[in-house]
Simulated scan of single mutants.
Amino acid sequence: MNARLQRIWVLLRLAAALFVGWRFGWAWGLPTLGLPAAVLAAGFLQLHWVNRPAPTWGQLLRAWAGEVLASELAFSWRQPWREWAEPDHLPAGATAGVLLVHGFSCNRGRWNGWMKRLRAQGVAFVAPSLEPAFGSIDAYADEIEAGVQRLKAVTGRMPLLCAHSMGGLALRAWWRRYGAGHAAPRAITLGSPHRGTRMAVLGAGVNAAQMRRGSAWLAELPGLPDADCFWTPCDQVVNPAETAILGGARAHRVDGVGHMGLVHTDAAWHCLQTALAGSSLGSVNTPRRI
């Protein structure tokens, strides 16, 4: 569903720019395409007063510039048009697997860069597109469980779980429903609103309401037993910034990067590689009670 909505959004933006250019001249039409970048700038400006310690103006400018590129790549190309450009990879004989979980208003195309690199390494991966797009986060637990089971069938062990934004909460909802039958997973979350976010009041749907600060749903959600949480003081979506840190998790601060840009950071990729190379991926024969 998100791919279809984002295709419509891209076409509407192009149509608006063509109309303005035809009606008022191309000196006005072409800048029309940049209106989302201007709106995005407002989201970064408020972080100077919301977060403590406050990010510097230089960090915010760098994060905004990177976020414009990351957002256009995601919402104008990969997600609307390239959702299945990198299919799930389940090679026979794979010894490690990764489950990739996207965030709010996104789809599996969010991970195209990571999936291409994992395929080149021979690492098995599954990346579901979570549906319904604006339904309850609890509804995503079944899709996540299906992906975990597919990876365990190939590798013989628990996969590494990696999630961006709302995907981190979807992992926690999955753990609440299915964790009793699994070994404790290693999880990496990138900009996930573990303690809610101020910006959720601007979102539509049940899942947006669940991500609001102080929501009853969020208060009842369990943590993850072994997690790395990446966060940034320049996160224009999940703020105040510390809300992206799950209690008991290993926190990793990344400066000068926005919400979408966290997926493109070397730090996050290196953490994934370290986890894959380590011994923290449990055997399928050791279920853990929660």
Rank of each mutant, 00 (worst) to 15 (best):
residue 117 R to N: 13
residue 184 A to N: 04
residue 104 F to E: 00
residue 123 V to N: 12
residue 114 W to I: 07
residue 163 A to Q: 07
residue 137 I to A: 09
residue 186 R to Y: 12
residue 118 L to Q: 07
residue 167 G to K: 02
residue 181 G to R: 13
residue 161 L to Q: 00
residue 130 L to Y: 10
residue 171 L to P: 02
residue 191 G to E: 11
residue 97 G to V: 09
residue 127 A to N: 03
residue 131 E to Y: 06
residue 189 T to N: 04
residue 139 A to N: 08
residue 126 V to Y: 06
residue 135 G to A: 05
residue 108 R to M: 13
residue 160 L to T: 03
residue 138 D to W: 09
residue 167 G to A: 00
residue 172 R to Q: 14
residue 154 V to I: 08
residue 145 E to N: 00
residue 157 R to H: 05
residue 186 R to C: 13
residue 154 V to F: 06
residue 143 E to L: 15
residue 131 E to M: 08
residue 133 A to D: 11
residue 106 C to K: 11
residue 137 I to G: 07
residue 157 R to A: 15
residue 173 A to I: 06
residue 117 R to G: 11
residue 119 R to G: 01
residue 119 R to T: 03
residue 91 P to T: 12
residue 174 W to R: 02
residue 135 G to V: 00
residue 184 A to F: 02
residue 120 A to H: 08
residue 109 G to P: 12
residue 111 W to N: 08
residue 110 R to T: 05
residue 93 G to T: 10
residue 161 L to M: 01
residue 176 R to E: 11
residue 123 V to K: 12
residue 186 R to K: 14
residue 161 L to P: 00
residue 93 G to Y: 10
residue 100 L to S: 11
residue 108 R to S: 15
residue 131 E to T: 05
residue 191 G to T: 05
residue 142 D to C: 06
residue 153 A to D: 01
residue 189 T to R: 04
residue 112 N to I: 00
residue 186 R to N: 09
residue 192 S to D: 04
residue 190 L to V: 02
residue 99 L to D: 05
residue 153 A to W: 01
residue 129 S to N: 05
